[in-house]
Computed example of a mutant assay.
Amino acid sequence: MRRLLIPLVTVSILALGGCATNKRKDDLTTTLNAYASTVRWGDFNSALNFVDPKVREEHPIPPLEMSRYQQYKVSGYDEGNGPTPNGEFEAKQVVKINLVNVNTQAERTVTDHQTWRYDAESKHWYLETGLPDISAGKL
Score class of each variant (00 low, 15 high):
Pro53Asn: 09
Leu4Gly: 13
Pro83His: 12
Arg24Met: 15
Phe50Gly: 05
Leu139Glu: 10
Glu57Arg: 14
Gly130Gln: 04
Asp43Pro: 02
Glu90Thr: 12
Val95Glu: 07
Val102Pro: 04
Thr129Ile: 05
Tyr118Val: 06
Leu8Arg: 04
Glu88Gly: 00
Thr115Glu: 10
Ile134Gln: 08
Glu58Gln: 15
Asp43Ser: 09
Ser135Met: 10
Pro83Lys: 00
Leu28Glu: 02
Asn49Gly: 04
Lys25Ser: 14
Ala91Val: 08
Asp27Asn: 14
Val74Gly: 03
Pro63Glu: 06
Arg2Trp: 12
Gly130Lys: 05
Tyr35Met: 12
Val74Leu: 07
Gly18Met: 06
His113Pro: 01
Ala120Tyr: 11
Ile6Glu: 00
Asp26Ser: 13
His113Gln: 11
Leu99His: 04
Leu131Met: 11
Asn33Phe: 05
Leu4Pro: 01
Val100Tyr: 01
Ile61Asn: 03
Pro63Phe: 04
Thr129Tyr: 04
His59Lys: 15
Met66Trp: 09
Leu5Trp: 07
Thr129Asp: 03
Pro60Glu: 02
Tyr126His: 10
Asp26Trp: 12
Met1Phe: 08
Pro60Lys: 08
Lys23Arg: 08
Arg3Gly: 09
Ile61Ser: 02
Asn86Gln: 13
Gly137Phe: 05
Ser12Cys: 11
Arg2Thr: 06
Phe50Asn: 03
Glu128Tyr: 11
Glu88Phe: 08
Gln105Ala: 11
Val51Thr: 08
Trp116Gly: 07
Phe44Met: 12
Ala15Lys: 01
Arg117Pro: 02
Gly18His: 04
Asp119Ala: 08
Tyr72Trp: 12
Ala106His: 10
Thr115Pro: 00
Leu14Trp: 04
Ala15Trp: 10
Ala136His: 05
Thr21Ile: 00
Glu90Met: 14
Asn101Lys: 13
Gly17Pro: 01
Arg108Asp: 02
Gly87Glu: 06
Glu107Pro: 00
Ile13Thr: 02
Val11Asn: 01
Glu107Arg: 13
Leu16Ala: 11
Thr31Ile: 13
Ala34Val: 00
Lys25Thr: 10
Asn98Val: 13
Trp125Asp: 04
Gly82Glu: 07
Leu14Gln: 01
Arg2Gly: 13
Asn49Thr: 14
Lys54Cys: 00
Asn98Trp: 09
Glu57Lys: 15
Met66Phe: 08
